[in-house]
Computed example of a mutant assay.
Amino acid sequence: MGIVTDSDITSYLATLNIIPTTLSQLNGGTANLAWRIRDSTNRSIIIKHAEPYIRTNASILLPTDRMDFEHVALTTLTLPPQPHIDIPIALPSVYHYNSTRHVLLMSDGGPRTMKAAYTDPTLDIPALGRGLGTWLASLHASTKTTTSVGDNQTAKSIARYSYANLASALASYGFDASLGEDIDAEYGSLLQSDDACICHGDFWPGNIVLAAASTSRPTATVVDWELVRRGCGATDVGQFAAEAYLLDRFCGSRGLCAAFLDAYALAAEEKGALGREWWGRCGVHLGTHLAFWPTSVVWGGREETGECVGLGRELLLRARGGGRGWRELLVLPIKPAG
């Protein structure tokens, strides 16, 4: 029996002897149902539940084991202390998980995502970018050899989606589709065999939750680990950098992309040079993201979307040769907050 309504989740919570004093369904995200409740101790709790389809379209099936992988990540990953990060970065604490009914109860990281909060002038956006870049480098470096989260085939399939549709995105804006086909064959195929480190799998500002709305240096919680997998860290970096660029480009040019990339590079290269191949892979993933996703998620009109697709194409052409020469294409003038 599914858990899809407020009444369903209230009945489930009663089996745990939890009677919420408040309950509200959360609308963000595509795949899972989610609620925020307060219990009798006034503790705020987030509940996630997976049905065997995506929340926004029941005709699209999606394996429920995505919740198993999230639970493994949240209860397995331990990161070394980060004395150089000004902004505390955390993972949610797990309170309960039912692997049969795919219900996860965890701590509430806060009311706003970093994407939603980007335009808040009280937030130090570059500091957040630097903290997240440093943190992500630590995640990748500390999980190179010993950490396993299982074989998340759903995550690998979803990661390939933008590569598989890159050719059509390029063609729809007048660019040669063969570039997309070549990128998918050369780089998209690597997603199945990558095994360098633990990757979050969906690392972007929408999955960074901020705890305090009134301080410039809030605690940030990294959420939504259902696409976690062993992979290549360049894909996490490329995805976040692409979404950070889009925020900078369309929402205020506050320097998030550059701050994040510079901090990741500094932290990662202190532990050993990343190399031309790694940087090329990062640029390819970034370019694939920018060339495809703005054609599906609205950031601007058709002309602005075409500019993003064209930028993605240029990134791909430069990055295929390896190295980091593509970085100069992402430079935007930084505007002061306020």
Rank of each mutant, 00 (worst) to 15 (best):
S148V: 07
S59F: 05
G174I: 12
E314I: 10
P92I: 10
R230A: 07
S157Q: 12
L316S: 01
A127R: 14
G325R: 05
D224I: 00
L79N: 00
G280Q: 08
L246W: 02
T219S: 02
Y95L: 14
A241Y: 07
S7G: 09
F260M: 02
C308M: 15
A263M: 03
E307W: 06
A58L: 10
T15I: 05
S253F: 01
N27W: 10
G280W: 06
D6C: 06
N57R: 13
G306F: 04
D248A: 05
D108N: 02
V237D: 05
T113W: 00
K48M: 02
N27Y: 11
L332E: 11
H71G: 00
L123N: 00
P20A: 00
S193M: 11
R38L: 15
M1G: 14
T219E: 03
M114G: 05
G283K: 13
V94E: 04
I46D: 04
N98G: 08
M1Y: 14
D262R: 11
L316A: 02
I334H: 05
L104G: 06
E70V: 04
R130H: 06
R229W: 02
T64R: 15
V331C: 14
T305H: 13
A196Y: 14
V4R: 15
E269V: 05
D176V: 07
V331M: 12
S138L: 13
L261Y: 08
S148L: 11
R302C: 11
G206Y: 04
N57L: 08
D6E: 07
A164S: 09
R160V: 05
D195L: 03
A258Y: 12
L91H: 06
S214F: 05
Y161Q: 12
Q153K: 14
P92F: 08
S99Y: 05
C251P: 02
E328R: 14
I208R: 00
W326F: 11
A137S: 14
I47P: 01
P218A: 09
G252W: 08
A177G: 07
V298N: 13
T56L: 13
L74I: 06
L62D: 09
W326Y: 07
S168Q: 15
V222S: 04
T41I: 08
M106Y: 02
A267E: 04
L247N: 06
S178H: 10
A185S: 09
